[in-house]
Amino acid sequence: MQLDGKTALVTGGAKRVGRVISLTLAEAGANVVINYNNSAEEAEATAAEVEAFGVGALPVAADVGDPVAVEAMVDAAITRFGGIDVLVNNASTFHADPFPTTDLTVWNQAISTLVNGPFNCTNLVAPSMLERGGGAIVSVSDLSAFEAWPGYIGHAVGKSAILAMTRQFALELAPTVRANAVVFGPALRPHDYDDDRYQRTADKTLLDRWGTPEEMAHAVKYLIEADYVTGEYLVIDGGQRFGHRKAEAG
Protein backbone atom coordinates (compact mmCIF):
# COMPACT_ATOMS: atom_id res chain seq x y z
CA MET A 1 0.00 0.00 0.00
CA GLN A 2 1.25 3.46 -0.89
CA LEU A 3 0.54 5.98 1.86
CA ASP A 4 0.00 8.99 -0.37
CA GLY A 5 -3.61 10.15 -0.09
CA LYS A 6 -4.51 7.56 2.55
CA THR A 7 -5.73 8.08 6.10
CA ALA A 8 -3.94 6.63 9.13
CA LEU A 9 -5.02 6.39 12.75
CA VAL A 10 -2.09 6.31 15.18
CA THR A 11 -3.02 5.52 18.76
CA GLY A 12 -0.78 7.24 21.27
CA GLY A 13 0.31 9.30 18.27
CA ALA A 14 0.94 12.59 20.07
CA LYS A 15 4.31 12.10 21.73
CA ARG A 16 7.53 10.10 21.90
CA VAL A 17 7.82 7.38 19.25
CA GLY A 18 4.11 7.65 18.40
CA ARG A 19 4.65 11.28 17.38
CA VAL A 20 7.47 10.30 15.03
CA ILE A 21 5.25 7.59 13.52
CA SER A 22 2.55 10.22 12.92
CA LEU A 23 5.07 12.52 11.25
CA THR A 24 6.60 9.74 9.15
CA LEU A 25 3.20 8.74 7.76
CA ALA A 26 2.32 12.39 7.17
CA GLU A 27 5.57 12.94 5.30
CA ALA A 28 4.59 10.00 3.06
CA GLY A 29 1.35 11.79 2.23
CA ALA A 30 -1.19 10.30 4.64
CA ASN A 31 -3.76 12.20 6.69
CA VAL A 32 -3.22 11.33 10.33
CA VAL A 33 -5.74 10.86 13.11
CA ILE A 34 -3.69 11.46 16.24
CA ASN A 35 -5.20 9.58 19.16
CA TYR A 36 -4.22 10.55 22.69
CA ASN A 37 -5.49 9.88 26.17
CA ASN A 38 -4.08 12.57 28.46
CA SER A 39 -1.65 14.44 26.20
CA ALA A 40 -3.93 17.07 24.63
CA GLU A 41 -1.24 19.72 24.38
CA GLU A 42 1.24 17.37 22.69
CA ALA A 43 -1.50 16.17 20.32
CA GLU A 44 -2.20 19.73 19.16
CA ALA A 45 1.51 20.36 18.62
CA THR A 46 1.91 17.11 16.66
CA ALA A 47 -1.18 17.94 14.59
CA ALA A 48 0.45 21.24 13.58
CA GLU A 49 3.60 19.34 12.57
CA VAL A 50 1.52 16.85 10.56
CA GLU A 51 -0.31 19.66 8.75
CA ALA A 52 3.01 21.20 7.81
CA PHE A 53 3.41 18.25 5.41
CA GLY A 54 0.28 19.41 3.57
CA VAL A 55 -1.96 16.61 4.85
CA GLY A 56 -4.88 16.59 7.25
CA ALA A 57 -4.51 16.08 10.99
CA LEU A 58 -7.21 15.26 13.51
CA PRO A 59 -6.31 14.97 17.18
CA VAL A 60 -8.88 12.85 19.03
CA ALA A 61 -8.98 12.01 22.71
CA ALA A 62 -9.94 8.44 23.55
CA ASP A 63 -8.91 5.82 26.07
CA VAL A 64 -8.30 2.90 23.68
CA GLY A 65 -9.42 0.51 26.40
CA ASP A 66 -12.92 2.01 26.25
CA PRO A 67 -14.90 0.70 23.24
CA VAL A 68 -17.43 3.52 23.44
CA ALA A 69 -14.70 6.13 23.24
CA VAL A 70 -12.96 4.25 20.41
CA GLU A 71 -16.19 4.06 18.44
CA ALA A 72 -16.67 7.81 18.77
CA MET A 73 -13.07 8.38 17.66
CA VAL A 74 -13.45 6.12 14.61
CA ASP A 75 -16.73 7.85 13.68
CA ALA A 76 -15.04 11.25 13.93
CA ALA A 77 -12.16 10.05 11.74
CA ILE A 78 -14.50 8.63 9.10
CA THR A 79 -16.62 11.78 9.12
CA ARG A 80 -13.55 13.93 8.56
CA PHE A 81 -11.59 11.78 6.08
CA GLY A 82 -14.17 9.36 4.64
CA GLY A 83 -12.55 6.21 6.00
CA ILE A 84 -9.43 4.71 7.54
CA ASP A 85 -6.77 2.81 5.56
CA VAL A 86 -4.04 2.38 8.14
CA LEU A 87 -4.17 1.67 11.86
CA VAL A 88 -1.09 1.84 14.07
CA ASN A 89 -1.77 0.36 17.51
CA ASN A 90 0.94 2.21 19.37
CA ALA A 91 -0.72 3.41 22.60
CA SER A 92 0.98 1.95 25.64
CA THR A 93 1.38 2.24 29.35
CA PHE A 94 4.64 1.45 31.10
CA HIS A 95 4.37 1.00 34.83
CA ALA A 96 6.22 -1.29 37.19
CA ASP A 97 4.03 -3.97 38.66
CA PRO A 98 5.52 -5.92 41.56
CA PHE A 99 4.49 -9.54 41.70
CA PRO A 100 2.84 -10.95 43.76
CA THR A 101 0.67 -7.95 44.55
CA THR A 102 -2.59 -7.07 46.28
CA ASP A 103 -3.16 -4.00 44.10
CA LEU A 104 -4.55 -4.78 40.63
CA THR A 105 -4.45 -1.19 39.36
CA VAL A 106 -1.34 -1.52 37.20
CA TRP A 107 -2.31 -4.96 35.87
CA ASN A 108 -5.78 -3.80 34.88
CA GLN A 109 -4.42 -0.66 33.27
CA ALA A 110 -1.86 -2.62 31.23
CA ILE A 111 -4.42 -5.17 30.06
CA SER A 112 -6.90 -2.42 29.23
CA THR A 113 -4.45 -0.43 27.11
CA LEU A 114 -2.34 -3.21 25.57
CA VAL A 115 -4.89 -6.01 25.08
CA ASN A 116 -8.31 -4.36 24.94
CA GLY A 117 -6.87 -1.29 23.20
CA PRO A 118 -5.61 -2.95 20.00
CA PHE A 119 -8.64 -5.24 20.04
CA ASN A 120 -11.12 -2.34 20.28
CA CYS A 121 -9.36 -0.21 17.70
CA THR A 122 -8.91 -3.01 15.19
CA ASN A 123 -12.40 -4.34 15.77
CA LEU A 124 -13.92 -0.93 15.09
CA VAL A 125 -11.59 0.22 12.28
CA ALA A 126 -11.60 -3.04 10.30
CA PRO A 127 -15.13 -2.57 8.87
CA SER A 128 -14.01 0.67 7.20
CA MET A 129 -10.95 -1.08 5.74
CA LEU A 130 -13.00 -4.02 4.50
CA GLU A 131 -15.50 -1.61 2.95
CA ARG A 132 -12.72 0.32 1.22
CA GLY A 133 -11.21 -2.94 -0.05
CA GLY A 134 -7.84 -2.60 1.62
CA GLY A 135 -6.04 -1.79 4.82
CA ALA A 136 -2.88 -2.23 6.81
CA ILE A 137 -2.51 -2.62 10.57
CA VAL A 138 0.74 -2.36 12.48
CA SER A 139 0.79 -2.98 16.23
CA VAL A 140 3.66 -2.05 18.48
CA SER A 141 5.20 -4.62 20.79
CA ASP A 142 8.57 -4.72 22.51
CA LEU A 143 11.15 -7.23 23.73
CA SER A 144 9.06 -8.13 26.78
CA ALA A 145 7.08 -10.26 24.31
CA PHE A 146 10.07 -12.63 24.23
CA GLU A 147 11.70 -12.31 27.63
CA ALA A 148 10.58 -11.77 31.21
CA TRP A 149 11.16 -8.27 32.60
CA PRO A 150 11.36 -8.13 36.39
CA GLY A 151 8.49 -6.04 37.76
CA TYR A 152 6.58 -5.72 34.49
CA ILE A 153 4.21 -8.66 34.38
CA GLY A 154 1.21 -6.72 33.05
CA HIS A 155 3.28 -4.98 30.41
CA ALA A 156 4.94 -8.22 29.24
CA VAL A 157 1.64 -10.06 29.01
CA GLY A 158 0.10 -7.16 27.10
CA LYS A 159 2.98 -6.92 24.63
CA SER A 160 2.90 -10.70 24.14
CA ALA A 161 -0.82 -10.53 23.44
CA ILE A 162 -0.13 -8.03 20.68
CA LEU A 163 1.78 -10.70 18.75
CA ALA A 164 -1.05 -13.18 19.16
CA MET A 165 -3.63 -10.60 18.10
CA THR A 166 -1.53 -9.70 15.07
CA ARG A 167 -1.63 -13.30 13.83
CA GLN A 168 -5.37 -13.44 14.42
CA PHE A 169 -5.99 -10.10 12.69
CA ALA A 170 -3.88 -11.22 9.74
CA LEU A 171 -5.79 -14.43 9.29
CA GLU A 172 -9.27 -13.18 10.02
CA LEU A 173 -9.08 -10.03 7.90
CA ALA A 174 -7.22 -11.61 4.95
CA PRO A 175 -6.98 -11.12 2.06
CA THR A 176 -8.27 -7.54 2.22
CA VAL A 177 -6.36 -6.29 5.25
CA ARG A 178 -2.81 -7.08 6.29
CA ALA A 179 -1.69 -7.03 9.94
CA ASN A 180 1.85 -7.03 11.29
CA ALA A 181 3.70 -6.13 14.46
CA VAL A 182 6.86 -4.24 15.19
CA VAL A 183 8.93 -5.21 18.21
CA PHE A 184 10.86 -2.20 19.42
CA GLY A 185 14.13 -2.29 21.29
CA PRO A 186 15.66 0.75 22.99
CA ALA A 187 14.58 3.87 21.10
CA LEU A 188 14.05 6.75 23.52
CA ARG A 189 15.75 7.23 26.85
CA PRO A 190 13.27 6.86 29.70
CA HIS A 191 13.26 9.76 32.12
CA ASP A 192 14.66 7.69 34.98
CA TYR A 193 17.74 6.33 33.14
CA ASP A 194 21.06 7.71 34.36
CA ASP A 195 24.08 7.72 32.05
CA ASP A 196 25.38 4.44 33.38
CA ARG A 197 22.14 2.61 32.75
CA TYR A 198 21.79 4.24 29.35
CA GLN A 199 25.23 2.95 28.36
CA ARG A 200 24.56 -0.52 29.75
CA THR A 201 21.50 -0.78 27.53
CA ALA A 202 23.50 0.24 24.48
CA ASP A 203 26.12 -2.36 25.37
CA LYS A 204 23.51 -5.12 25.29
CA THR A 205 22.79 -4.55 21.61
CA LEU A 206 24.90 -5.99 18.81
CA LEU A 207 25.33 -2.50 17.34
CA ASP A 208 26.49 -0.96 20.66
CA ARG A 209 23.93 1.83 20.43
CA TRP A 210 20.35 2.92 21.05
CA GLY A 211 17.97 3.06 18.15
CA THR A 212 16.12 6.19 17.12
CA PRO A 213 12.38 6.92 16.91
CA GLU A 214 12.91 7.50 13.19
CA GLU A 215 14.26 3.95 12.76
CA MET A 216 11.21 2.57 14.57
CA ALA A 217 8.84 4.67 12.47
CA HIS A 218 10.42 3.60 9.20
CA ALA A 219 9.86 -0.05 10.08
CA VAL A 220 6.18 0.77 10.60
CA LYS A 221 6.12 2.47 7.21
CA TYR A 222 7.79 -0.50 5.54
CA LEU A 223 5.19 -2.92 6.94
CA ILE A 224 2.37 -0.66 5.73
CA GLU A 225 3.87 -0.71 2.23
CA ALA A 226 4.95 -4.38 2.11
CA ASP A 227 2.10 -5.97 0.20
CA TYR A 228 3.10 -9.60 0.78
CA VAL A 229 4.04 -9.33 4.46
CA THR A 230 1.28 -10.23 6.90
CA GLY A 231 1.03 -11.99 10.27
CA GLU A 232 4.70 -11.15 10.74
CA TYR A 233 6.61 -9.39 13.49
CA LEU A 234 9.67 -7.33 12.72
CA VAL A 235 12.16 -6.72 15.50
CA ILE A 236 13.99 -3.38 15.55
CA ASP A 237 16.33 -3.80 18.48
CA GLY A 238 19.88 -3.58 17.19
CA GLY A 239 20.05 -7.33 17.72
CA GLN A 240 19.56 -6.94 21.48
CA ARG A 241 17.52 -10.12 21.75
CA PHE A 242 20.48 -12.10 20.39
CA GLY A 243 23.01 -10.29 22.55
CA HIS A 244 22.47 -12.12 25.82
CA ARG A 245 25.90 -13.83 25.64
CA LYS A 246 27.64 -10.86 24.12
CA ALA A 247 29.92 -10.32 27.09
CA GLU A 248 31.49 -13.70 26.36
CA ALA A 249 32.50 -12.67 22.85
CA GLY A 250 35.54 -10.91 24.28
Binding site: A219, V229, T230, E232
Partner: peptide, 26 residues
Protein backbone atom coordinates in the same frame (compact mmCIF):
# COMPACT_ATOMS: atom_id res chain seq x y z
CA UNK B 1 12.10 -6.30 1.52
CA UNK B 2 15.78 -6.43 0.57
CA UNK B 3 15.72 -2.76 -0.40
CA UNK B 4 14.21 -1.87 2.97
CA UNK B 5 16.85 -3.86 4.88
CA UNK B 6 19.54 -2.18 2.75
CA UNK B 7 18.38 1.33 3.66
CA UNK B 8 19.89 3.64 6.24
CA UNK B 9 16.53 3.74 7.97
CA UNK B 10 16.71 -0.02 8.68
CA UNK B 11 20.05 0.41 10.42
CA UNK B 12 18.74 -0.82 13.78
CA UNK B 13 17.49 -4.16 12.44
CA UNK B 14 20.12 -6.86 12.65
CA UNK B 15 20.23 -10.62 13.12
CA UNK B 16 16.61 -10.85 11.99
CA UNK B 17 14.92 -13.14 9.52
CA UNK B 18 12.07 -11.31 7.81
CA UNK B 19 9.25 -13.45 6.47
CA UNK B 20 7.76 -12.31 3.18
CA UNK B 21 5.34 -15.18 3.03
CA UNK B 22 1.88 -13.70 2.68
CA UNK B 23 1.13 -14.91 6.20
CA UNK B 24 2.06 -18.52 5.52
CA UNK B 25 4.71 -18.34 8.25
CA UNK B 26 4.18 -16.12 11.29
Amino acid sequence: AVEFLASDEAGYITGESLNVSGGACT
